[in-house]
Write a protein that binds this DNA or RNA. Structure first.
Length: 418
RNA sequence: GGAGGCGUCGCCUAGUCCGGUCUAUGGCGCCGCACUGCUAAUGCGGUUUGGGUCUCAAGCCCAUCGGGAGUUCAAAUCUCCCCGCCUCCGCCA
């Protein structure tokens, strides 16, 4: 939810942001009109309520002979109040609908354009060359006894997999490495619920344009989260926070319907319905948000470097930003089997957009004001395993284990096919 | 899953049975002022949040007693639904 007060003063900023995102700038004017209409309805209802209040007092203190007449006017006022309150409720709802339709304001400097218009900020490590025919992660994982998608499909359907043996151990090793690094950096580790109420889902902006991506448990009115960003953001909802910043590293399973991704990444475990992830989530003073964003990006880069993976950092263009994000960086690792860059991590600065919806505030000189929230992937496990196997494969089918992971894999330097 | 209890403006708490100056009591904490070598103590005042109006601020108005709906001229108080917490029973890793 964007800042209405700011929008009243500077509607052009809102329109410009909408244009950059490829959204309709007229929605800004619709929002301002709904705001205006609501204020009128509120004033009318307030005035009637005040009148009714004094009428009510008059009834109590009326003499017996005056009472019937006074009661009658009070009753008439009550009817009017009821109508005015109904009108106010409708105006409130209309404003909310218009408000929810607007994604976050894009920050200055975000590249214009869509999915193809990202800007490459840097590349870390060289694209690896192999003097043998490379295998993809599924072939490697099958040979290692690490990944079983056939039985995943048998048991749960397409886009599900079992991680077995080294696959399971690799996941645990990655989780340990990631959580350890996060704790070292001052994050509070959190095991978060993967099922959340509708308010949590809506508050984080996932029920808008991407609602079809989300699993819902209809009979319990709960949603399965696609990222622990959702429970972590909702964790402090409705609270007033002192002692900012708060930094959390959440671990949870993530569930995604992958509706509309038919035929994309169908092989292996690059795009599955369920995976585990360590996610960073920060609540900071709005003025510190941009600096915090750079920190999150730095942690992501450090983690990929520790895994000895070549990657590049891109800044995502305006029209490709999620509803809540005002700026987003992705780290993309090299995927040898497909000779392309694959998104492994993503970090977004959501400014005060989520905090306004979720009612997360802190005390400032102007009184209570929404905080800024930021999120960043530290390690999306499945995809990381896929890239790890491919990048570190050798001609004999063995896979090199990066130094950083060895302490969590009983000191193993390589994984061997069964 | 069953039975019962509870939820009041930071924390604790009065008020709810029996609707009406509740414009919500008192304490703690906190803020300001006074007194005072300093601190403490004491005294006085202030201290929910959201919205509207005004736009420099102050002030004024409306709403707010877990959330929502209802009854009524009038709801913290009565009715219904939902949420949360606690106790007991059942079941369970």
């Amino acid at each position: 939810m964007i800042d209405l007060r700011l929008l009243r003063e500077d509607p052009d900023r809102g329109r410009a942001s909408q244009r950059a995102r490829g959204e309709d700038p007229a929605l800004i004017d619709a929002l301002l009109a709904a705001d205006e209409a609501r204020r009128g309805a509120v004033t009318r209802a307030d005035n009637l309520r005040a009148a009714q209040k004094s009428a009510s007092v008059a009834v109590r203190s009326a003499s017996p002979q005056d009472r019937p007449a006074i009661l009658e006017t009070a009753q008439a006022l009550a009817t009017q109040v009821k109508a005015a309150e109904l009108a106010q409720a409708e105006a409130d709802a209309a404003l909310r609908t218009a408000h929810l339709a607007i994604p976050n304001l894009v920050l200055d400097g975000v590249p214009p354009g869509g999915e193809q218009d990202y800007v490459v900020l840097e590349q870390v490590g060289a694209v690896p060359a192999y003097d043998f025919p490379v295998l993809d992660h599924l072939d490697l994982g099958t040979a290692l006894g690490a990944i079983d998608t056939e039985r995943g499909a048998k048991v749960s359907g397409s886009r599900f997999a079992f991680l077995t043996g080294w696959g399971a151990l690799l996941e645990l090793a990655l989780v340990n490495l990631a959580v350890g690094a996060a704790v070292e950096a001052g994050f509070t580790p959190v095991i978060a619920p993967a099922l959340v109420r509708p308010e949590a889902m809506e508050g984080t902006g996932f029920l808008g344009a991407h609602a079809a991506e989300v699993y819902k448990l209809e009979s319990d009115d709960l949603y399965l989260v696609g990222t622990s960003e959702v429970p972590l953001a909702a964790y402090h909802s409705g609270e007033v926070l002192d002692d900012l910043p708060y930094r959390y590293a959440g671990f949870s399973s993530c569930f995604r319907r992958e509706a509309g991704s038919h035929g994309k990444d169908t092989r292996g475990i690059i795009r599955v319905h369920q995976f585990d992830k360590v996610e960073m989530f920060c609540l900071v003073a709005p003025a510190d948000a941009q600096a915090e964003h750079q920190r999150l990006l730095a942690y992501e880069k450090a983690f990929l470097s520790a895994l000895e993976l070549p990657f590049r950092v891109i800044e995502v263009a305006a029209a490709d930003l999620g509803t809540s994000a005002a700026r987003k960086y992705d780290c993309e690792a090299w995927l040898p089997s497909q000779q392309r860059w694959l998104e492994l991590t993503s970090t977004s600065n959501c400014t005060d957009f989520q905090a306004r919806r979720l009612g997360i505030r802190s005390r400032s000189e102007q009184g209570l004001a929404p905080v800024a929230t930021l999120n960043g992937t530290l390690c999306a496990i499945g995809r990381t395993i896929a890239v790890l196997l491919e990048v570190h494969q050798r001609a004999d089918g063995s896979v090199h284990v990066p130094d950083a992971l060895r302490p969590y894999l009983a000191g193993r330097k390589e994984l061997l096919p069964q």
